[in-house]
Design a protein around this nucleic acid. Sequence first.
DNA 1: GTTTGTGAAACCTTTCACAGCA
DNA 2: TGCTGTGAAAGGTTTCACAAAC
Lengths: 211, 211
Amino acid sequence: MRPIIEQGQNTLSSRELGEKLGIPGAQVRKDLAWVVKSRGSDETGQAGVGYNCAALCESVRRVIGTHRRWSTLLMGVGNIGRALLAYEGFAQDGFPIVAVVDADPRMVGKKVSGHVVSPLNAMQRLICRHDITIAILAVPRSAAQAAANQLCGAGIRGILNFAPMRIAVDEGISVTNIDVSVSLEQLSMDISRRDQSGRREQKRGSDRGAA
Amino acid sequence: MRPIIEQGQNTLSSRELGEKLGIPGAQVRKDLAWVVKSRGSDETGQAGVGYNCAALCESVRRVIGTHRRWSTLLMGVGNIGRALLAYEGFAQDGFPIVAVVDADPRMVGKKVSGHVVSPLNAMQRLICRHDITIAILAVPRSAAQAAANQLCGAGIRGILNFAPMRIAVDEGISVTNIDVSVSLEQLSMDISRRDQSGRREQKRGSDRGAA
DNA sequence: GTTTGTGAAACCTTTCACAGCA
DNA sequence: TGCTGTGAAAGGTTTCACAAAC
């Protein structure tokens, strides 16, 4: 899993890339053409050679937005919040947690994995001062909507929501949900459907490999 | 957010349902027709009335697979593992954690949120005995592929992977990934794209509301 | 020779619109 | 009248296939 560019190869064909991703080369070319166009760049692939790894990487990072740092605020230092703070890998990915708040006064002032927990009423100021765009919402379900409202009011641009519910937000604010139960349901559905097609396959005498 | 069925309403139209989900009624009808067909049931919606909430719920649960319990094994009692054990909400959703294992001998025998941690070599036996179909993989990235291999060998059917990497698994095994950094990247891309279209909108004099 | 970028074709999903039913 | 189920239209995505570029 060492970066390809460090393995001495500094160019990649769409077919190679597609093999790694399990998709046909044509789709890679279409997608990459879109990336280049989105970026407004003219750094395109070279016929007969392929794509320059470094340039490609930079283009993709531009389009995804990971070329810059996105300061984040963590709201809630319960079990999930503490696990996230302990991980410490987000800063490397460009998402440093620069502020931590909790509604529980008993938590305020405590240090969790090196981060001092601030009170809710400091949030607005923290967001402005640290130019925070993203909030990680790690509070219990019962507190989630109220917390989301406060975040919207404080001028956050996006929320990563760990509460097992849909939160309503103001127009113009993006939300991404992480819900372990939903992921488990996806998984169980995948397994069920595989079971069913397997049984069908058996019944009508294995038509043609896997579906 | 009280269940609709407890609010005295025991029937729902595709339009109502679509409004709640933010999609047109026609799509709800198409999807529900698929659910009914998938289930092989003839419990269909009633013209002029709508869908029976209870029957609909049951059909959807059948298709997703949540009509039955899926015993799960947790592998790894690090920060994420402990947070998952502390949550205790998965059992209610039909995904009870019935076994917990960790490679660290110092962890074995300890009780975490009421679950005794078993050693790795007990895993195979636990999976058979408790009829475990799903594993939650919550180990560090460096240990993830080896752990996945062991799970595949032990006859697991699906893996919910929290390690920040793609794991390779045997044919016929389903994987769902939860990667917070990837979710943060999704969020930042959403925000970036909104910014861009916003700026475009401004430049050419706000064509027509939101894009 | 190899590989890109891209029209055209094939495929899939969403929306429309309406006959038919309660 | 109100609503479903579905054929047809519209829209979008993926794959094919090949001229042009290296």
